[in-house]
Every structure is written in C-alpha cells, then in structure tokens.
C-alpha cells in the first residue's frame, strides 16, 4: 500500500523569504502526523503544497500514491481539507452549508450522520453568522469529512477554541482515525500534538529540525532539569526553537 503522503526536497520562496527550504517527509496510512512550529515556520505553506493548493518551486509530492498534476480530480474526491482562515457564507444555515459541500462529492456521509458526529444537530437551522467560534470550527471539520475522505488535512484546527471545544474536536478526530483514516495536521499546541499525533515533525525556518514520536522526542530532548518532574513536548519545542517570542 502506498504512503498517504510522501514529499521530497520541497522548496517554496516568496520574493526574499524562503518559506519552505528542502523539506522531505513521509506519512503512513492510518497515522496521525503533526507539523509543529512557531508562527512563520512554513507549516501552512507546506500543508498547502501537500493539499495541491500551492505549487512548490521545486520538489516532488505524492498523495495516496497519486500526483496533483495528473490526478487532481480523483485526489479532491478522496481528501478532506480544513483551512486556517476560511469563513463560510454568513446567511446560510449549517445544514445548507453541509448540503452544498455534500453535493460536490459522489460518495460520502449523510448530512444527519455528520451533524451527529460534530454535535451540531441543535444548530442545524441556524445561520453560520450566529455560531460560536467552536461551532464554526466544528462545521468546518464536518465540511472536511463530508466526502468520507481517506486523508484529512487540518491547518491549526483548534486555534481560538475553548478547552471544551478542543476536547470535542479531538474526540471527532479520534473517531475518524478509529475508522482507518489518516490525518496530517499543523498546530502550535504541544498538548494537542501529544494527545493526537503518532509522530510529529518540528519545523522552523522552512526546515525540519526533529521528527519522532512525541514520547521519544520528550525523553531525548527535554531539558535535563525536567528529569525529576517529567518533561513535556512543550519543553522540547522550546529548547529546539528558542524561547523568544515571534511575530507572524
């Protein structure tokens, strides 16, 4: 069985800024793979290249054993995608939005099943503009799951969510994985990566600077002072990328 995602030596530059600088990675079927990194590290550019929304300057991408150039339509039917900043139409209801997205796919889940999965049944007839941040995010996940995808791409899915909404999101993603699905997600929440991901790649300045299971990274790289009180992935992240604050 081919890998879910395989890319080699991706490079993408915007003017003087090198967003992705020779990045290679493999994601296995059934895996949940996390891309971690500070703002501006190149996570979004990388995931958008994998999603076929951006073309790399150089490098090679295969998704589900297929290439974007030759199999775009088939890939679009088999992927679920959630983007960081997309907003749905304010004055459509939750159900109308889902039905619209459902119409694009030949195969997929029923609207009722999706509403149940993301616990939005009671909001079925509410306009999108009336939803809370967490509810909008769940609608966005439901739209990504509408075609019953083999592979799910999520770009910072829990940014801006309160703790309850995050837990709810995690449980939706765990259900998806239990059904055999593969997930590639970006996040800058370390606890989220530890809970969800089988393996994480830490990315900075467009390069991969670490790749392993969360546990292995913690035991190998967490600062020595953390030995007494067990280290976390957060410590690993800080020691690798530095402690200074960064702006987007």
């Amino acid at each position: 069985m081919p890998l879910a995602v395989s890319c080699r030596e991706l490079r993408k530059r915007y003017g003087d800024v090198i967003a992705v600088d020779g990045l290679s990675l493999d994601v296995h079927r059934g895996e949940c793979f996390g891309l971690l990194g500070p703002n501006g590290a190149g996570k979004t550019t990388t995931i958008e290249i994998l999603e076929g929304l951006l073309t790399p300057d150089t490098g090679d991408v295969e998704v589900l054993g297929l290439r974007w150039k030759t199999h775009e339509r088939e890939l679009r039917h088999r992927l679920g995608i959630q983007l960081q900043e997309s907003q749905f139409t304010d004055k459509l209801t939750v159900e109308e939005t889902l039905r619209l997205f459902r119409s694009f796919y030949a195969q997929g889940r029923s609207i009722d099943a999706l509403l149940a999965m993301v616990e939005l049944e009671s909001k079925r007839r509410s306009w999108v503009v009336k939803l809370s941040g967490g509810q909008k995010q769940r609608l966005s996940i439901a739209c990504a799951l509408v075609g019953d995808p083999d592979l799910l791409f999520l770009d910072e899915p829990s940014t801006g969510l309160d703790p309850q909404s995050r837990r709810q999101l995690w449980s939706v993603l765990q259900t998806f994985r239990a059904g055999g699905g593969t997930i590639v997600l970006t996040t800058h929440y370390m606890d989220e990566a530890e809970v969800l991901c089988d393996r994480v790649a830490i990315v900075d300045h467009g390069r991969m600077i670490a790749l392993d299971t969360p546990k292995a990274l913690v035991s190998a790289l967490a600062a020595p002072k953390m030995v007494v009180q067990e280290g976390t992935l957060e410590d690993v992240f800080m020691s690798l990328t530095g402690r200074h604050l960064r702006d987007e």
Partner: peptide, 8 residues
C-alpha cells in the same frame, strides 16, 4: 479557496 480545495 476552501471551495477549490473540494471537488467542486
């Protein structure tokens, strides 16, 4: 952008 990420 979200719509073109679907098979629409």
């Amino acid at each position: 952008k979200r719509l073109v990420a679907s098979p629409m």
